[in-house]
Amino acid sequence: MAQFLRLAFFALIARPIALIVLGLNLRHRERLPLNGPAIIAANHNSHLDTLVLLSLFPLRLLPKLRPVAAADYFTVNPLLAWFSLNVIGILPIKREAKGGADPLKPCEMALERGEILVLFPEGSRGEPEVMGRFKRGIAVLAARRPQVPVTPIFLHGLGKALPKDDPILVPFFCDVFVGEAMHGDTEQTVFMTELTARMQALAGELPQPKEL
């Protein structure tokens, strides 16, 4: 039942929103992973980010796609919790681990099951259209599973379409640039520098409108 609801939601609501209401300018589609286990790392500006990222993949991969989300935000309200867990299919993790519990354990287990994790290393949506600093959790996860590819994806325009503090969706064409996959076989600081550099390079592919 939940699987069916999820399929219906993505086929009939999420995809039409992503592809018709918004419209995606997708570059380097061929760099997307074809199967799990894999990690997608994207910048985060809007609730639409997850819908758009999940719409990039064929529907048959939907059962494998798991957006990683903060348990304290998405599972407090029972209705939101039900929707996030069953329809969006989030993998809830605890940001503030108590008593030495490993917050990345659920992620590792999901990768073991061959799932595709969708991660936002900034942690939260932050200021619209401003890329915040990436947190190190992704480097730790990548180092524990160095064979799993980490694909950076740069999103632009979604913070304009549905920013953090406004419930009204205003249609804009959005840019989705897929970067080349990397692996966690280097030192964590090196990994983070490289990931940030790749995101900046993708951001640099945007047409640079001159100032008026």
């Binding site: 419209g23 619209p128 325009g157 304009k160 920013p163 406004d166 009204i168 205003v170 249609p171 804009f172 064409f173 409108p209 008026l212």
Partner: peptide, 23 residues
């Protein structure tokens, strides 16, 4: 018309304050 307007509004600089107006 919708696609053309959306493309136009995506290209030009718009003010964040005008989201409701664009709607």
């Amino acid at each position: 018309s919708f696609l053309a307007l959306k493309e136009y509004l995506s290209l030009i600089p718009t003010r964040r304050a005008d989201r409701r107006v664009l709607f």
